[in-house]
Design a protein around this nucleic acid. Structure first.
Length: 796
DNA sequence: AGTCACGTCGTTTTT
DNA sequence: CGACGTGACT
């Protein structure tokens, strides 16, 4: 039953919108999921729209499930027919059906990050690239970036002609694609890119989906990349019988919550939506239903410091609530203990543990927190870290399944060829590989021809033949006896003696138990999955569908809401969630914002992304928010002494309740302090000019600190370490602070040029202490505010 | 072929 | 600190 009365006017307007492009700018906690579900329900119930023709794209599989659930509660029937999915799952389904049109086999494998890395590694080895000089990460990132921008290997190659380094990347990219195809595999980025390609190459396929999906809705639109943008454009264009063009595309997003630029998300997708789709209806949802007034004020105070954003202010009717707490600890360990203490206190006050979440910037921070939870017997749920499906034993079994399913997947075959140990070593593998390369065979095919390969001993040949027979037997047995995935796994375990292998190689009894239970868990998941397949009478092959499912689940999808416990996760994973009690820890310079951000060439925009991440974290909290930082932290085996995060200074002080849990003079023992390490390692290179973002508001709470964090450049002096006793606030030098506006080289009224936006007229110059905020009117993009130090404006 | 000991290097964040 | 690769030895 749809209850329109509970919606506010803007929400209602969005829900009732039927045809034409719709952009919903939905701030944190503004009830956007409610709007989306109600809109879908409205279309079905009131507008006679067939649920089958509705496509809803969410950020995670879990969000997809939940959306379907919530629609189901609103409509009488049909919620199960809505296509709700993530971009990646959707593409995988499309490709599974039609990728043969692009010359792949429909039984393709999806490579995860590990597979991708292994493949790149083998290419670099064959190309004799020195990975000390050219890091494999560089190649992976460059290829991924290219794919997200829909640049093929061939295009990359021709567009980089003349650039030695980029040509090297191009060569690897070309080979990478060649091998992916030879293995009949796609990586994550390919899922998007190949779908776009499929739609271009096979217009009839595109037409089928265009006809089907009359209404498309996309959540978290601010985090879409170029490939996703193009994909949506392809799908959303529907040519009516009368030749009219419809774009029934509804996107929901919040530019302040864009936190995935590092993986290609293009914030312009949301900022330019109106200009991309003519006649767009724009609706802003600025009323927050989630958080207290105070939490919201803190969030607003922080995000206001970003320049690159659409102006908006969230407001709420909710009560004021408690002040946001900031706890300052001497060390990371004490921080973890402090948080655990606090949660225990809440627990004894009757707060449910599942109402509490601890958020942090990096996964590595979870360890200390976990330890404290274990020590105190506080149940907790850890999101992320080592993915279940990347555990060694799980990957081994999956590789067997992949080999059974897709014999071309050489990566999977090489992984299991000698697992459990069969006495087939690297030299043999190389010989087989050489034979395969020579005859243009897949690795497995070459293995099958091992009797004809020169230079391999008879005993080794026998071992290989035993392996290929094992696989072919599994294959035919699975097919002939129509084995379930679970039964195939059992078959694998029996035939290979994998369980004995675990017993033999595990270091401890605990490890044996752990690994065995992981395999049981995998079997359970397989069984549960097949059951769901039967229910949804899908025609998909169970094994192939299972493998696909498994490669696309995210960590957050794995969280079980039905079990209690404190949730521990990264700020990124927390996107879209809410908790009554939220802890954000590790608020230190060098950690949050991260070290690499501070050192990057363009810290300005990267710090803005970090700030958005903080904003996302703050706005997860409903009732109470507790922030914390530590003066001393173990990072990569070294003790670091970092300043409190700059973001803390952006919080209006009257909203902040600061507690300093520090014991001056005792927190760093001389023994603990490594002599070779001193304070100029606080995350700042002496010669890298550091610039903070322009601060509209910044509050001085530096007396809570050992150092003043205003000027990291002051840590240059080695003397800082020797005299850095407790509570010595350092005076901030003004060395590259207040410049005169005349040094800019332009004034109000001048025409200047900008790299991206072209020429524009300077409207205003405001001094921000260290930098200048320049307002420029561009004919192309309108009025923009930017920082002089990042914008590189030149007078024309 | 397999194992062990030592050196290097690095972290954001994830579908 | 810990994962991972290299190289020498059994």
């Amino acid at each position: 039953m749809i209850d329109y009365d509970t919606l506010n006017p803007e929400q209602l307007k969005a829900v009732l919108h039927e045809d034409g492009p719709l952009l919903i700018l939905a701030g944190a906690g503004s009830g956007k999921t409610r709007v989306l579900t109600h809109r879908i329900a409205h279309l079905i119930e009131e507008c006679d729209v067939n649920p089958y023709s509705i496509l809803a794209i969410t950020f995670t599989n879990k969000a997809a499930q939940e959306m379907r659930h919530r629609v189901d509660r609103l409509v009488t029937t049909g919620a199960e027919d809505i296509f709700v999915s993530t971009f990646h799952s959707m593409c995988a389904r499309f490709l599974r059906r039609d990728i043969d049109r692009l010359g792949y086999e429909n039984s393709f494998t999806i490579y995860d990050a590990d597979d991708q890395k292994a493949l790149i590694k083998s290419i670099l080895k064959d190309f004799q690239v020195d990975t000390k000089v050219f890091k494999e990460r560089t190649f992976i990132n460059a290829i991924s970036d290219a794919k997200n921008d829909l640049i093929t290997a061939e295009e990359y190659d021709s567009s980089t002609a003349g650039n030695y380094n980029l040509q090297k990347i191009a060569a690897v990219y070309l080979e990478y694609q060649r091998r992916l195809k030879a293995n009949n595999a796609l990586d994550f980025d390919d899922l998007l890119m190949k779908t776009v390609e499929l739609f271009k190459e096979a217009p009839d396929v595109l037409e089928r989906y265009r006809r089907r999906f009359r209404y498309i809705m996309v959540d978290e639109y601010q985090d879409t990349n170029h490939a996703q943008f193009v994909l949506l454009r392809q799908l959303a264009e529907r040519i009516g019988d009368d030749g009219s063009i419809e774009h029934n595309l509804c996107v929901v997003g919040d530019d302040d919550q864009s936190i995935y630029r590092f993986r290609g998300a293009d914030i312009r997708n949301i900022l330019d939506f109106e200009s991309q789709y003519t006649d767009t209806t724009v609706i802003k949802l600025e009323k927050n239903y989630r958080s207290t007034q105070t939490i919201l004020d803190v969030a607003n105070g922080v995000i206001e410091n970003n320049i690159e954003r659409k102006a908006k202010t969230m407001w709420t009717d909710n009560p004021k609530g408690d002040a946001v707490k900031l706890n300052i600890y001497d060390s990371d360990i004490l921080e973890a203990k402090g948080i655990a203490d606090d949660i225990e206190k809440r627990r004894s006050d009757g707060v449910s543990l599942s109402d509490c979440a601890i958020l942090y910037r990096t996964n590595a921070q979870s360890r200390l927190l976990e330890e404290q939870m274990v020590v105190r017997g506080i149940p907790y749920k850890l999101v992320g870290g080592v993915n279940f499906y990347s555990r060694m034993e799980v990957k081994d079994i999956l590789s067997y399944l992949r080999t059974v399913e897709n014999g071309l997947d050489s990566l999977a075959v090489t992984r299991i060829l000698n697992v459990p140990k069969r006495g087939i070593g690297n030299t043999t593998v190389s010989k087989v590989q050489a034979y395969a390369d020579l005859r243009d065979l897949s690795f497995f095919e070459a293995l099958c021809e091992v009797p004809y390969i020169q230079g391999i001993s008879a005993s080794t040949k026998a071992k290989i033949t035993a392996f290929t027979e094992l696989i072919t037997n599994l294959r035919s047995k699975a097919a002939n006896e129509r084995l379930s995935v679970e039964e195939i796994i059992d078959e694998i375990l029996n035939e290979t003696g994998y369980i004995d292998y675990i017993d033999e190689y595990a270091d401890s009894d605990d490890e044996v138990i752990e690994r065995r239970s992981n395999i049981d868990e995998l079997k359970n998941k397989a069984a549960a999955f097949e059951e769901s397949l039967v229910l949804s009478d899908s025609e998909a092959m169970p094994l192939s569908a299972f493998l696909q499912e498994v490669s696309l689940v995210s960590d957050i999808d794995e969280v079980d809401d039905s079990v209690g416990g404190v949730t521990l996760m990264t700020l990124h994973s927390a996107k879209g969630l809410e908790f009554p009690y939220v802890y954000i820890c590790g608020l230190e310079e060098g950690l949050f914002p991260g070290r690499s951000v501070l050192m990057s060439e363009d810290p300005g925009s990267e710090i803005e992304e970090e700030r958005r991440l903080f904003y996302v974290g703050i706005t997860r909290a409903m009732k109470e928010l507790t922030l914390s930082c530590a003066k001393q932290r173990m990072l990569r085996g070294e003790i670091n002494f970092n300043d409190k995060s700059r973001f803390l200074k952006e919080i209006p002080p009257h909203l902040l309740d600061i507690t300093s849990n520090t014991k001056p003079h005792t927190y760093i023992s001389e023994r603990e302090r490594p002599s070779r390490r001193n304070f100029d390692d606080s995350g700042f290179e002496p010669d890298v000019p550091y610039r903070s973002s322009f601060k509209q508001k910044q509050y001085d709470i530096s007396d809570e600190f050992i150092f003043d964090l205003e000027t990291p450049s002051s840590f240059k002096s080695p003397k800082a370490s020797s005299s850095a006793g407790p509570a010595v606030a350092r005076q901030a030098p003004r060395s590259f602070g207040s410049r005169d506006a005349s040094t800019l080289g332009f004034a109000v009224g001048d025409t200047v040029s900008h790299m991206k936006f072209g020429e524009g007229v300077v409207k205003d110059i405001v001094s921000g202490g260290k930098d200048f905020e320049i307002t420029v009117d561009f004919p192309t993009v309108g009025t923009r505010k930017m920082l002089a130090s990042f914008a590189h404006l030149k007078k024309v």
